[in-house]
């Protein structure tokens, strides 16, 4: 096992994702502790410029036509080859679609220990200690890895590092000439009927609202407050609200003045999209729901009682 710290660069055509800069911030710190180098792995086709300015000591640039877009099969094999050759102490990937599709495969192929959903990583001598958010954010696990480690990191966990002049080294891709996955198309999300990222007040509903018919209670409150209704993923997946109103990792990141979370548990993927709201009020019957850790005010009263009561009082106050 070596002492380098690897980071998988997430990018689209050389435009690097913010999450990568966060990982590089942590990688630099870890590399200082291990006495190794911070090494960024850029898998691409014709996007070597993505390496410029990364805050790493070295960028390994792997160029291959199969790496033009994110292809899970190609990424795992190419990264596993780099890891086998260089034996890094740690590999950092984002807990994104790309990271989820790579980390487990890398662990299976290399035998290196994987800690998923990390939000903190430290070194205690030779032992890597990571905190993993499990059980929908209700519990943290403190996990120790003695050998080479892979960590998939929740967005927003580390301060970003930018600005560097890394030594860019070209590496030949191996093992990705015959793939059974083909890229067909990239589809950008549809334009939205409402831009929830531009709203000051969001009344946001989760599965705890109980059904499509109950959305109207949230709508009435939003109308009284002059805001709009947004929701968690299960609510948009179920078709109770349009997809454009989804808050979170795979939806929109919002920062309203007021966010009222109604029957939302506060899973890490949801918090990613709203924890920066200025004022968060959570209504959730489970006193242990993680949403209360980011909310400023909370209540465990039934959401179907609080919503109409609040609407009524606000309407009365405005009238």
């Amino acid at each position: 096992m070596g002492s380098d710290v690897f980071t998988l660069v997430e990018h689209v055509g050389g435009t690097v994702d913010d999450s990568t800069h966060e990982l590089l911030g942590k990688a630099r710190e870890l590399a200082t502790a291990t006495g190794g180098r911070s090494v960024a792995c850029l898998l691409h086709s014709g996007a070597r410029a993505g390496a410029d300015g990364l805050a790493a000591d070295v960028v390994l640039s792997v160029e291959h036509p199969a790496l033009e877009h994110f292809l899970p099969e190609a990424y795992v094999k190419a990264l596993a080859a780099l890891v086998a050759d260089h034996e890094p102490r740690v590999v950092l990937v984002a807990n994104s679609t790309v990271g989820m599709d790579v980390a487990g495969g890398l662990s299976a192929r290399t035998g290196n220990g994987l800690v998923a959903y990390c939000n903190a990583i430290t070194l205690e001598g030779d032992t890597l200690v990571a905190i993993s958010q499990v059980f929908g954010g209700k519990l943290n696990a403190e996990v120790a890895v003695e050998g080479p480690a892979i960590c998939s990191v929740v967005s927003g966990s580390f301060a970003p590092a930018t600005g560097g002049s890394p030594d860019i080294q070209d590496v030949t891709a191996s093992g990705i000439d015959n793939l059974t996955t083909t890229f067909l198309a990239r589809i950008e999300p549809e334009a939205s009927d409402v831009d929830i990222t531009a709203e000051d007040i969001l009344v946001s509903v989760g599965r705890g609202i109980g059904g499509a018919d109950n959305i109207e209670f949230a709508q009435e409150l939003a109308d009284a407050l002059g805001g709009v209704v947004s929701g968690s993923r299960p609510v948009t997946d179920a078709g109770w609200l349009s997809k454009t109103r989804q808050v979170g990792k795979s939806g929109q990141k919002v920062k309203p003045k007021l966010y009222i979370a109604c029957g939302i548990s506060g899973a890490p993927e949801h918090l990613e999209g709203m924890s920066d709201a200025e004022l968060i009020i959570a209504i959730n019957s489970d006193a242990n729901a993680p949403i209360f850790d980011v909310a400023h005010f909370g209540t465990t009263e039934d959401v179907l009682d609080v919503l109409p009561a609040l609407t009524e009082q606000i309407e009365a106050a405005v009238a």
């Binding site: 662990s107 035998g111 290196n112 220990g113 994987l114 800690v115 200690v129 958010q133 499990v134 954010g137 209700k138 519990l139 943290n140 696990a141 403190e142 996990v143 120790a144 890895v145 003695e146 050998g147 080479p148 480690a149 968060i280 959570a282 242990n288 993680p290 209360f292 850790d293 980011v294 909310a295 400023h296 005010f297 909370g298």
Partner: peptide, 17 residues
Amino acid sequence: GTTVRRLYAPESSSHAE
């Protein structure tokens, strides 16, 4: 390749009032 040392409820610095 990993060992769970402990599980714990996240100690939030700012639980909702």
